[in-house]
């Protein structure tokens, strides 16, 4: 157990033992390789298999909306999760006073797909050490630098440090390469329209409409998603081009001004479909046009909710 894990666990134990929280949301040791599991501790006896490492791929803010407002929730937050929680507070999904955020400066989440792809063999064991990962397979042993394995969202993360946690454990870390986000959006935008549509088509046509992307996203908490509507039916029910493209366009659009680029949607997808190239575009648009970055505080309304008469200067034609 790492020093950081020990400290986090001790903090979770304290919060639970002192009844400061009803539930502590963190991670526990995996059964399946590379996939630690979100865990919901209600009692400090349950903390035995507590883990925290770079393979913890889910955005824990997802689970905030499952509890009634009165529940006192303690949780681990990394930079992106902190911002998700902030934005959920803006959207009145849980009162700030009933959340205790234990912040962890984040060194980035490893993309499990990259690991399996690089190895190309069945993985039997994984060892994590700072900046490095050692993977044992049936026949070989591989060493990787952590930066090779970061999920694309983490590689361009601008806010790895929690910004409004109640307590931060660990030293602040440097942002990775935040300029990369704009660079990627620009590079993509610089391709021809034809190439961009081909890219989009190629990604969306693998979709099996399992909605893991939706279920993994902290902002997808609607009681009924537009694709599940029976009347009116908003889109085709099949895995047809129309159905899949609508899903990819509208899911992303519903995150406008609400997405923190945590990448949880992409990591959840069983078909390796890229999605953040769309949400990042929306994020940069919101930043450029409305100087809005989601979740930087727990008060500011997102652009779609914050329109005023001043907007009249923006009308053209």
């Amino acid at each position: 157990m790492t020093d950081l894990e020990m400290k986090l666990k001790a903090e979770a134990k304290r919060l639970l033992d002192e009844h400061l929280v009803d539930v502590f949301i963190g991670f526990r040791k995996e059964n399946a390789p590379l996939h630690p599991q979100p865990a919901f501790f209600t009692n400090s006896d349950q903390l035995d298999d507590f883990v925290y490492n770079n393979l913890c791929q889910n955005n824990l803010a997802k689970f905030l909306t499952r509890y009634p407002h009165e529940t006192k929730i303690g949780m681990i937050v990394r930079g992106c999760e902190n911002r998700s929680v902030n934005h959920l507070i803006v959207e009145r999904q849980h009162p700030r006073e009933n959340i205790i955020m234990i912040g962890v400066p984040c060194t980035g989440i490893y993309d499990w797909r990259k690991i399996t792809q690089r190895c190309g063999e069945e993985i039997s064991d994984v060892e994590l050490s700072p900046g490095k990962i050692t993977v044992k397979t049936s026949k070989n042993q591989f060493e990787f630098e952590s930066k090779e394995l970061l999920h694309v969202s983490c590689a361009r993360c601008s806010q790895p440090n929690p910004i409004s946690a109640d307590l931060v454990i660990g030293e602040p870390v440097e942002p990775k390469d935040p300029a990369r986000a704009k660079r990627q959006v620009e590079t993509f935008g610089g391709m021809t329209a034809k190439a961009r549509y081909e890219w989009f088509t190629h990604e969306s046509e693998r979709c099996i409409r399992c909605y893991a992307c939706r279920e993994a996203c902290p902002m997808c908490y609607c009681a009924e998603c537009f694709v599940d509507h029976g009347a009116p039916r908003w889109t085709e029910s099949m895995v047809s081009k129309a159905g899949m493209q609508t899903w990819h366009i509208i899911r992303a659009f519903h995150q406008t001004g609400r997405c923190v680029d945590c990448g949880a949607c992409e990591r959840a997808c069983p078909m390796d479909i890229r999605m953040t190239y769309i949400t990042e575009k929306l994020n940069t648009d919101m930043e450029n046009e409305y100087q809005f970055i989601c979740g930087m505080d727990d008060k500011t309304q997102p652009p779609f909710a914050a329109f005023t008469m001043d907007d009249k200067t923006r009308f053209v034609a």
Binding site: F40, A212, A216
Partner: peptide, 13 residues
């Protein structure tokens, strides 16, 4: 059910 997301991955695959 606590950690389950309720997605279609396990059943569709």
């Amino acid at each position: 059910q606590r950690s389950c997301l309720g997605c279609g991955v396990c059943t569709f695959l």
